[in-house]
């Protein structure tokens, strides 16, 4: 297992599209959070007044954009092997298929966690610098803030696993990217159009992710942070299980 893991890590870091993805993710998250922190104004649901403003959520919101490179790279670790035929050498080198997928999962999760930690740390620093200029309070250094920050990192890891599973299931990068990004960005909007769509919206991954970042006015959220975490874990488990089944049983 250790050797297979080392091989997966070597594969990850020797291809630009995956190796650079976490850096791009961090950059995009910080840039987005900086823009938000600099331009935010009271008057929205998240930030009704300066005193009741959920500045933690505002500053962590950049991850909504930053998640994209990591999520796409996670899908690429599987789909890239099918597209290039590299699945042959991979399974020749490591015949136990479940081991191959597990080591890929460990690799992408580790990268997501690292990128997530860097991102939230950077976001909080940016918040301290830019929020006072917008007239908003700085996020307090208390347990709630840490909870939201760590939950955001977890969100990134879980959503990465979802993408890996979908990549293993679909084996085609265009399809996988469309499905994952559609799930993240389009589902909440479309859910509101459908009858009983509020259920769909409530359990959408993005809704859960945003709930994890919320520190104020939790009752107005569609879902509580802890339920959100459960929902995301369920998504990750389902996607990786389905992906593993397809990976294991079908001939490449």
């Amino acid at each position: 297992m250790r050797r297979a893991l080392r091989a997966e890590w070597t594969k990850w870091r020797t291809v630009p599209s995956t190796a650079l993805a976490p850096w791009l993710a961090v950059a995009l998250t910080l840039a987005a959070s900086a823009v938000v922190a600099a331009t935010a104004e009271p008057g929205t649901t998240v930030c009704p007044t300066a005193e009741t403003c959920d500045t933690v959520r505002l500053t962590l919101s950049g991850v909504q954009l930053g998640q994209v490179p990591v999520v796409v790279a996670a899908a690429l670790t599987v789909t890239g092997e099918y597209g290039t035929g590299l699945i042959g050498p991979t399974l020749t080198a490591v015949p136990r298929r479940l081991r191959v997928l597990t080591t890929k999962a460990v690799t992408v999760t580790a990268v997501a966690l690292a990128a997530g930690l860097l991102s939230v740390a950077g976001c909080l620093i940016i918040a301290r610098a830019l929020l006072p200029g917008s007239g908003l309070p700085v996020p307090p250094a208390d347990a709630t803030t840490w909870r939201a920050a760590l939950a955001t990192v977890l969100y990134l890891a879980l959503i990465t696993l979802v993408s890996l599973g979908i990549g293993a299931l679909l084996r085609n990068i265009a399809a996988a990217v469309t499905t994952v990004l559609g799930l993240l960005f389009l589902l909440p909007i479309l859910a509101r159009l459908l009858p009983n769509g509020h259920l769909l919206e409530k359990y959408a991954p993005t809704t859960a992710g945003l709930a994890l970042q919320t520190t104020k006015n939790l009752e107005a959220q569609l879902i509580s942070p802890s339920t959100g975490l459960t929902v995301l874990t369920a998504y990750a488990a389902a996607a990786t299980t389905l992906g593993a089944l397809r990976f294991h049983t079908h001939d490449p």
Binding site: S17, A32, V35, V36, T39, A40, E41, T44, V46, L58, S61, Q64, L65, V68, P69, V72, A75, L76, G83, I173, A174, V177, T178, L181, G182, F185, L186, I189
Partner: peptide, 25 residues
């Protein structure tokens, strides 16, 4: 010229309002 990059970029560009509007309004 790269499928992942092109599909991702186009979708993110199209969905940008979904991302940006909640933050910046």
């Amino acid at each position: 010229r790269h499928t992942a990059a092109a599909v991702t970029t186009t979708i993110v560009l199209a969905m940008a309002p979904v991302l940006v509007t909640p933050m910046a309004g």
